[in-house]
Each structure stands twice: as structure tokens, then as C-alpha cells.
């Protein structure tokens, strides 16, 4: 609990990018999230770790309302996105999301994967959308693949295209849902390198991950979840080397 919240002192500057308050989520009778309070400040990289079934992916998916929260508040840049007045499509277009299974559109070329939402959601013209797409492909190191189809790319390349697709919408923040968990080990490094670059550019990131090395090196904050609650959070180096809670200790002793 090393993080000191400051929104009361400096509201204009310190509105969190993501602010989750008292979030509960049920799937049928199962309570998956049991009152989560969680926030990500602008420019921060927050990593969320925990055993499978701990609710970490559900929390992430609630942040852009791919899952509908049962109760609680989710504020994105200060606006409650669960308010029925809020245009959820507009909110989502400002939050990039990267999935474990990449979810590229298999019927479209790489370039059209990157331009589709730019054109339909942002209303950009073709030339502008293509230019932005090419900049982002260059950023993830896949300029030469723009006319390839997803099926012809390796998992690591697909995930980098997926990151470029999200970036092409010029999002204010990025959500990563176990972005390297479906990759062969030798392909993980390329994806993490792209994410590291993003972090160093100041992108706000929430990363659900099992990559403790990435969390330690890049993360500003590490959150450990178990059983639908936040058990412990703090600086990654502190949590990883001196976990306070015994559930954290038990988990880390298994994965490290």
C-alpha cells in the first residue's frame, strides 16, 4: 500500500486514467469480483497478477465494459462509463485492448485490420487511415507484412499487429489481457519489447500478465489478486521480493 492517492489535493491534474470503485461482478450465482478498488494514474504501467480464476481478466474486461459490472463504479478519465448516458462505443475507442488470443480479423489483410475501425469509428479517410496504420506497423517492426493475412503470421507477429491495430485508434490508454500467454516462449520477447517501448513513451497501461520480469522492470505498480479481491499492491520490486500477505507469498513461491 505504498501508493498515496492524491485526487483530493489536485483534481485537475490527478484524475486517474482508470478508477474502479467497489466493483462487484457475478456470473450467475458466482461472485467473481468481490468489491474491487483499483486505479491507474495517467502514464502509469500497472501490472495485475494472480492465479487463474482470481478475477484479474474479468476486472480488465470490466474496464471497457466487455463484461457488464454487477455493481460499483468505473471511471475513465473521471467519467463513469456505467452511466446509461455514456456512449460506450466512444469510451471503447479511447481504450486500446489487446487479447490473449490476438483476435485479428482473419478475412482482412494486416493493413485493413488496422484501418477498419479508424474508418468506421474515427471517420478517417482512406489515405489518412493507411498512413496512421503504416506508422504503427513500423512501430511494432512489421512494415513488410502489411499485405499479409493473419493466418500467415506467427503468433508473436499477430500479437504485434493486434497492438498496432489498437494504437491506430490513438487510444488514451491500453489494456493487455495476458498478451504473451498464448505465445511460444521464443516469441514472447518481441511482444514484450514492443510493450516496453510503449511504456517508455508514457502510454497508460493496465497489464494482466504472468511475466514477472516485465512487471518488475516496466511496471510502476503491481497488484496481486486472489479469489476476487485485491490482496496486495505496491511497487513491483517490493511486492515481488518482500510480499506481505501469505497468499501472495504462496503464489510467488510457485511462479518465481
Amino acid at each position: 500500500m505504498t501508493h498515496s492517492a492524491t485526487p483530493e489535493l489536485l483534481p485537475e491534474f490527478a484524475v486517474p486514467a482508470i478508477d474502479v470503485r467497489g466493483l462487484h461482478k457475478y456470473f450467475g450465482p458466482n461472485e467473481v469480483l468481490k468489491g474491487i478498488d483499483f486505479h491507474v494514474d495517467p502514464g502509469q504501467v500497472v501490472c495485475v497478477i494472480g492465479p487463474s480464476g482470481s478475477g484479474k481478466s474479468t476486472l480488465l474486461r470490466c474496464v471497457n465494459r466487455l463484461e457488464e459490472p454487477t455493481s460499483g463504479e468505473i471511471l475513465i478519465e473521471g467519467i463513469d462509463i456505467c452511466d446509461p448516458e455514456v456512449d460506450v462505443d466512444d469510451v471503447r475507442s479511447r481504450i486500446g485492448m489487446v487479447f490473449q488470443q490476438f483476435n485479428l480479423f482473419p478475412h482482412l489483410s494486416v493493413l485493413r485490420n488496422l484501418t477498419l475501425a479508424q474508418r468506421t469509428v474515427r471517420g478517417r479517410g482512406k489515405a489518412e487511415a493507411v498512413e496512421i496504420a503504416r506508422q504503427n506497423l513500423a512501430k511494432v517492426g512489421l512494415s513488410e507484412k502489411e499485405s499479409a493475412y493473419p493466418a500467415h503470421l506467427s503468433g508473436g507477429q499477430q500479437q504485434r499487429v493486434a497492438i498496432a491495430r489498437a494504437l491506430s485508434m490513438n487510444p488514451d490508454m491500453m489494456l493487455f489481457d495476458e498478451p504473451t500467454s498464448a505465445l511460444d516462449p521464443e516469441l514472447v520477447g518481441d511482444v514484450l519489447a514492443v510493450m516496453k517501448d510503449l511504456a517508455s513513451e508514457g502510454m497508460t497501461m493496465m497489464v494482466v500478465t504472468h511475466e514477472m520480469g516485465f512487471a518488475r522492470e516496466v511496471g510502476n505498480k503491481l497488484v496481486f489478486m486472489d479469489g476476487g479481491v485485491v490482496v496486495e499492491e505496491g511497487l513491483p520490486a517490493d511486492v515481488l521480493s518482500e510480499p506481505q500477505h501469505e497468499r501472495t507469498q504462496a503464489f510467488l513461491s510457485k511462479v518465481l
Binding site: L66, D90, R92, G96, M97, Q101, V121
Partner: peptide
């Protein structure tokens, strides 16, 4: 796959 819809919706597509 459901992930296709999720990917499109997460990009802000209606």
C-alpha cells in the same frame, strides 16, 4: 469466435 466481436467492439465499432 466470440473474440472477433469483442475485438471489434473494443475498437469502438457499434
Amino acid at each position: 469466435p466470440k473474440g472477433q466481436t469483442e475485438a471489434a467492439r473494443s475498437l469502438g465499432m457499434g
